[in-house]
Design a protein around this nucleic acid. Sequence first.
DNA 1: CATCGCCGCTAAACCGGTTTATTAAGGAGA
DNA 2: TCTCCTTAATAAACCGGTTTAGCGGCGATG
Lengths: 347, 347
Amino acid sequence: MRSGRVTIADVARAAGVSKGAVSFALNERPGVAVDTRERILKVAADLGWTPSQPARALSTSRAHALGLVMARPPEILAEDSFFPAFIAGIEAELVGSGYALVLQVVAPDREHDGYRRLARGGRVDGVLLTDVRVEDSRIPLLESLSLAAVTLNRTHADSPFPAISVDDRPAVTAAVRHLIELGHRDIAHVSGPEEYVHVVARRTAWEQALAAAGLARGPLVQGSFSARGGASATRRLLDRPEPPTAIVYASDIMAIAGLAAARERGLEVPRDLSVIGFDDTPLAAHVHPALTTARTDVLGWGRAATRALMALASGRAQPDVECPPAELILRDSTGPSNPQQQQGSQQ
Amino acid sequence: MRSGRVTIADVARAAGVSKGAVSFALNERPGVAVDTRERILKVAADLGWTPSQPARALSTSRAHALGLVMARPPEILAEDSFFPAFIAGIEAELVGSGYALVLQVVAPDREHDGYRRLARGGRVDGVLLTDVRVEDSRIPLLESLSLAAVTLNRTHADSPFPAISVDDRPAVTAAVRHLIELGHRDIAHVSGPEEYVHVVARRTAWEQALAAAGLARGPLVQGSFSARGGASATRRLLDRPEPPTAIVYASDIMAIAGLAAARERGLEVPRDLSVIGFDDTPLAAHVHPALTTARTDVLGWGRAATRALMALASGRAQPDVECPPAELILRDSTGPSNPQQQQGSQQ
DNA sequence: CATCGCCGCTAAACCGGTTTATTAAGGAGA
DNA sequence: TCTCCTTAATAAACCGGTTTAGCGGCGATG
């Protein structure tokens, strides 16, 4: 009575039953008469009782929580709209499930520690693996920690974990085709670190779309997914003796920074240069010119991944899931190729 | 031996002591001889034992976790660089403390549920309150849930919780003064929902700086902290019979969208219009023209708030903390007032 | 009418830690 | 040498749930 929390024993006493009966009633297990169950639930509601998660976790040896490790450098974390949307998707699925999300932000070189901290002490039942690598050292790590996991996109290495994937390639293919239809023949790509599977997928799609059209592979610059990286990659492309007439970026942030870099050079988009981003950041529609880009349902991706991981953590084996592919959104940053105008226009 | 997890009993047996001794040794409590303690710790390390958090939480009735509820609409969540930086700050302080961060993303009208879910079931020992309101209904809620909390900035209502504050006003004051020095006399403000204390603080600082210079209060438009809101607020300002020559925005995202909106109108920044943002998003330096804005050490803010909350959750009363104020960063989006050029330049 | 089986419920063990009460051993003081 | 006090360590209770074993009571069955 004087103690703070209401416990299962209080409920049992008030309902005139045993602790076990309350537990059974709460978890909808057979062995409790319907009217008894209802009486118990009513008493529980009246007393405002909710089972203690730690106690429940201790006896079931399941934390009823999922983990997410974010290992990006702070600058990129702050710029990217992926995580906020993704986390919103996770939570949309978690609401009402009794599961919680435990976060871990770590320096990129301390990534493994993040997973170890979550696993040890049994804080979570499983983790969501984002930013999946071609060869991902987290896979063996998680196996050794015997943590459940799902990967966002398939790693190229062997993985026992279900992959929840979004195919970026159709949008990139469509982007390149769109540019070719506009008359572009020199189409560059600003990618990211090649260790990431999504970077490779986008770069490959760009290459293959060019090859399919019988065009030479345009210049490729590796950006860093940051605004700074996008700006410097763009400057490097524009400094070439024969600068490209169009650039396909692996992210909106790099593309938006590219827009500014082009303008500094006196180029006007899309007259002198066509630009295509990737992500469809909310800002993309509100820069000048509005950015042609690729859209992915990140929130839906988060939901699908979470659903699979919860099922997996409950012991049900899960198949791979294929989410709807990214699609191209046409806006105003792409236009007809206009090479003579552009060449040597600066200085 | 065959069971998965190593428990304290395994360590005790291996070290030839009792469970209690292991617990004492781990928690550095007196009553264990130095060499015994070292032997125990060595055995624990050899066995790879880490105490189970749920078990520990059950006996100490402390979750060793903090909670953060994000109640912004998805669009704004995705655009804003605040949360990623803030969360990075929280984690920077949490690393090595044994605490974890539990996240809860909810629809703005379901905010209270988020806190209830965290409190019930004892998932967290305390919560960080962001986006503090002038009259904040979460304060009485948290008192009734008897959850510890710190607020980011002081609510105007009574609050028993320590406030960890950053003063936005000096930067806004400096921004307005800077514009006045450049010859501007008609300085508008795009703010946000007036329920937020930081919105009121920025708007008030803008008003007071104008009044201090003997200038009339310029036009005020309430934005929504989204790119879309920034664009439409800007258009509304530029549609006035006598459009302002300078706009101070309450956020970078709105300012960047404003840049594009001005350009659509045929205005050139800063020649025809000066623009100042707030936040110093990483992108701010990489748009064209580079955005003059206000910078806050959000990461440091997160650290300070987390430090205070952990201490509070451990039972130590905490004083209010004042973090370094926001400061103005001069870039290229502000220039001398040029009103004749601008008026009627569109159409 | 005796037996079986099932239903509804209880008592008690258990999860893996922390903490309190208690005991054994060793050293100082008289 | 005996007593007293301190220190080191243990055994057992406890945190708040879940889960297993078991036990009355009742209807169905033979």
